[in-house]
Computed example of a mutant assay.
Amino acid sequence: MVYDVTRPETFTHLTDMWSKEVEQYSTNQDCIKILAGNKLDKESERKVTKEEASAYAKAKGYLFVECSAKTRENVEKCFQDLSGKVSI
């Protein structure tokens, strides 16, 4: 699940709705979930703190990473973290 670190409503909507949808409709309750904060390149416009998002991810048992699709910072890490948890 992805939220925009500069738009708190995307994080709120994710926590209020999307995480519940994933949990309710997932066919595999043990699936690996990751919370990704996007637009890390806009740090000066940040509205959702890393601590807030990290705490939410930890409470839900999700992996957590912040990245930037624009600069590609941590994008590869996001996929490596996720693929590293998937068992074959």
Rank of each mutant, 00 (worst) to 15 (best):
A59E: 10
E76T: 15
E21Y: 08
T10I: 06
L82G: 04
L35G: 11
T12V: 12
K20T: 13
K42G: 02
A55Y: 03
Q80H: 13
E51I: 07
L63Q: 02
L82A: 12
Y62E: 07
D16R: 14
D81T: 12
D41F: 01
V75G: 08
N38D: 12
D41H: 03
D16Y: 14
E51K: 11
L40M: 15
E51L: 10
N28P: 07
D81A: 12
K77D: 14
V75R: 07
I34W: 02
S68K: 06
L63V: 08
Q80K: 13
F79E: 07
Q24P: 03
S26H: 05
K39V: 01
E66W: 01
D81M: 15
C67M: 13
G37D: 01
Y25T: 08
S68L: 03
L40A: 04
T49M: 06
N38F: 13
E66K: 07
E9A: 08
E23F: 04
K58P: 04
T10Q: 00
E21C: 10
I34A: 05
T49F: 08
E43Y: 03
R46W: 00
K60N: 15
C67D: 09
T12M: 08
K33N: 09
K47E: 07
K50F: 09
N28V: 13
I32R: 13
V22F: 11
K42N: 04
D41E: 13
V48Q: 00
L35F: 10
A36S: 13
D16G: 14
L40T: 04
T71H: 11
R46V: 00
M17T: 09
T49L: 03
A57M: 05
M17K: 10
T71N: 12
L14A: 13
F11Q: 03
A53Q: 02
V75A: 11
W18N: 04
W18E: 09
Y62C: 03
T10H: 01
S44F: 00
K39R: 11
H13M: 08
Q80S: 12
S54K: 15
K47C: 09
W18S: 04
L63A: 09
E76H: 14
